[in-house]
Nucleic acid binder design. Structure first.
Lengths: 288, 288
DNA sequence: CACGGGATGGAACGTTTTTTCCATTTATTC
DNA sequence: GAATAAATGGAAAAAACGTTCCATCCCGTG
């Protein structure tokens, strides 16, 4: 593999010493970590502004790691870029094609990047085919609800978990129907008029989720379904249906588009409810 | 998508006027053409030397094409690079301007599509910056583990939930450390050598997760951290660290890239363990 | 509560880099 | 070949930038 550039070595040292650094220098460290590729074109002032510190703090940072000043440290990043930009790129590409040509086990990274590509395709589709009217209706329904019940089982449970977590940052009462102790029915018992159920389900549809939707409708609660298609059993039991098609790779269905849609739903709701950033994302001791 | 950058426009004008240029300015033009990608990091003097010309000639060149001086022209190239190097940033900037643009009611669909854009940018970055070596190490670690513990709290809990669900389709014993009944410690008690802990955490790091990592290390279990940066407390307590940077929109952090990475991790693991599709995704009565 | 050490930010300083000016050279035209 | 216009290079002026110094502030300690 590529020999470690001095920039790599530096970032390693930074990572090692990070915790021992004063607050502002930690900011600088994080900034470098995150904007590593653009350090070389930035001026001290820009970097300082970017991490909300004084320019001299950036210089001190460089000096702490053995350079005479910022300029000398910047040169390290510039060299690293120059080294990989001009002569090496073609080599790297060749190496990649060599890896692809191999016969043995498929390298993990190869699988990963295919999967990521599939997920990207899924998101592209989501962006293109989102039904704006329905999305608005979904947001309105949640905004008007007093209690929000969230339900998804097995593959969809993680999504339900996330929605329930996010909604805790609103004033709504939120109920994650998790079936703990086999008590699906009991957890749904008190749903009623003025409430909403968010049901996430994909084929083959979990019978617990279908049951929950029926109960919700009988109790005159609004039902928002998040699923794959307008057809199928969810359509008849829901008031609003949001469609999300997941790309799949290696015969394995993604979940990123669904996650993305649900987050978008929450953000839109938060704005409708006019939550401030502080309310939405309380950065406190207990946040993670 | 194919919007011509100002740099493109400039190079076009240069090409048009090239013949009419004095000798030295032609040299500069050729140099720009050939070293287009590195203009942004070079100083006037370097460029001048590079084409055997005096610094003032370079300045005159810039002025001839309507810029106040070399610096202004250089900024054009720098912007062009920044735009293509990190599309994520430009997405964010667009989002911010949308928010600032109107204080009234932003339509929900507008918010949704901005959020999806940000998530797409996040995935693009994930695809580009995935550390293949580390990813392989992570897969190997999980493949060798007898028991796999999964831990994430609050924002990361949904991800942990998903990983635990997916891993149930392998032969491994999987333990989701969920803290039910306040029993984090008890759920971790039996972790030991030959086991692995997957810890998902983002700043500000949940103390429960940090605790779990320490316990795992003390018990000689392998620790796989999924987080945002090499810096911070997770680095020292983990054996493998996978980085994932989430795009954020409307001051709200995404989770789609993390989800995608975790799914990719699982797929790669499944292939390494040579699970068939049937084993991986049993399509049965209970699936959802 | 007083103290000390380190972190921080403002401003001055020195250096580097860019730009302008002008004298000189080179090319062009009649 | 002289006259004129344009191009060039040196050097000084100006600007930008990085660095250093120092007063102040904050935090942990005795």
């Amino acid at each position: 593999m590529a020999k470690r550039s001095e920039a790599d070595a530096l970032m390693q040292r930074v990572a090692d010493e990070y915790e021992a650094l004063p607050r502002q220098l930690q900011c600088v460290a994080r900034y470098l970590e995150e904007h590593r590729s653009s350090i070389m074109v930035q001026r001290v002032g820009e970097i300082a502004e970017g991490c909300g510190v004084h320019a001299s703090a950036v210089v001190r940072f460089a000096q702490r790691f053995g350079y005479s000043g910022f300029s000398e440290m910047q040169a390290v990043f510039r060299d690293a870029w120059a080294a990989q930009a001009s002569p090496a790129r073609s080599y790297q590409q060749r190496i990649r094609s060599v890896i692809k040509g191999r016969t043995g086990g498929v390298p993990a990274a190869e699988i990963a990047s295919r999967f990521i590509d599939a997920s990207r395709a899924g998101l592209d589709e989501l962006a293109g085919e989102l039904d704006e009217t329905r999305f608005q209706k979904a947001v309105d329904m949640l905004a008007d609800a007093e209690n929000i019940y969230v339900m998804g089982v097995r593959r969809s449970f993680a999504i339900a978990t996330y929605i329930a977590y996010a909604l805790q940052h609103t004033q709504k009462r939120v109920h994650l129907v998790n079936g703990l102790g086999g008590m699906f029915r009991e957890q749904l018992r008190s749903i009623g008029k003025g409430d909403a159920l968010i049901a996430i389900s994909f084929p083959p549809f979990g019978k617990e989720t279908l049951y929950a939707m029926r109960v919700a409708q009988q109790h005159k609660a609004g039902v928002l379904a998040i699923t794959e298609s307008d057809l199928g059993p969810l359509a008849r039991h829901s008031d609003v249906l949001l469609k999300v098609k997941e790309g799949s790779a290696f015969a394995f269905r993604g979940l990123t588009s669904t996650m993305c849609l649900c987050q978008a739903l929450f953000v839109a709701l938060a704005y409708k409810l006019e939550l401030t950033v502080e309310e939405t994302i309380p950065r406190g001791e207990y946040d993670d």
